[in-house]
Computed example of a mutant assay.
Amino acid sequence: MTKDEAEQLSIALMQIVGILDQSIMFVRDKDDEANGLQYRRAAGKVMAGIFMNLEEPLWERFPELRPRRMGGPYRVSPEIYEPLFYERYGDVEENDE
């Protein structure tokens, strides 16, 4: 795998995690508290699996692709997450990833 291909894969995985994160907010806002908690736990396990089993090994091979928010040098463009699946207005903060 080339660095460019690894970057494409890393971005795709970050997009998947981003959509899962948005889906947690969606369920939290649209469903009852018990279902929201159950969904958040299940989605969190999936997100952790993506991080530990897919992203981390990729970043070990290509450390220059590790995002700044994870202690690396790679600057993630917020545009990779657009269009948003769900955004809770008033709850959004600007991040320097």
Rank of each mutant, 00 (worst) to 15 (best):
E97T: 07
G36F: 09
N53P: 05
G36S: 06
V92Q: 13
Y81G: 13
R41P: 09
L37V: 01
R28E: 10
M14K: 09
V27R: 00
T2C: 02
I80L: 08
E94G: 02
N53M: 10
M14W: 08
E82H: 00
E82P: 02
R68I: 12
I11C: 01
F51T: 00
V27S: 05
Y39M: 00
M70C: 10
T2D: 15
P63C: 07
P73F: 04
R88A: 09
D31T: 02
E64F: 10
R75C: 11
R88S: 09
P78Q: 04
G49E: 00
Y89L: 09
A34T: 14
V46W: 05
F62N: 07
Y39E: 05
V92T: 08
L84Q: 13
M25L: 11
D31C: 13
D96A: 14
E55N: 08
G90K: 06
S77W: 01
D91T: 00
L9G: 05
P57V: 09
L84H: 14
L13M: 06
G18P: 06
Y86M: 10
N95A: 11
I19C: 00
R69E: 08
Y89K: 15
E93H: 07
V46Q: 07
W59R: 06
I50M: 03
A6L: 14
R61I: 13
E94D: 09
R66L: 14
D32R: 04
F85W: 08
A48K: 08
Y74S: 07
R28D: 12
T2V: 07
R41K: 10
M47L: 15
D4E: 11
T2A: 12
G44C: 15
R75P: 11
G36E: 12
L65I: 06
A43Y: 05
V92M: 14
L13G: 03
R28W: 03
R28V: 00
E5G: 08
F62T: 10
L84E: 03
I11A: 10
V46F: 15
N35F: 14
E87G: 12
Q38M: 09
M70T: 01
Y89I: 00
G44P: 14
G49M: 01
M25C: 11
D32T: 01
K3I: 11
E60T: 09
D31M: 12
L84D: 13
D29Y: 00
I19H: 07
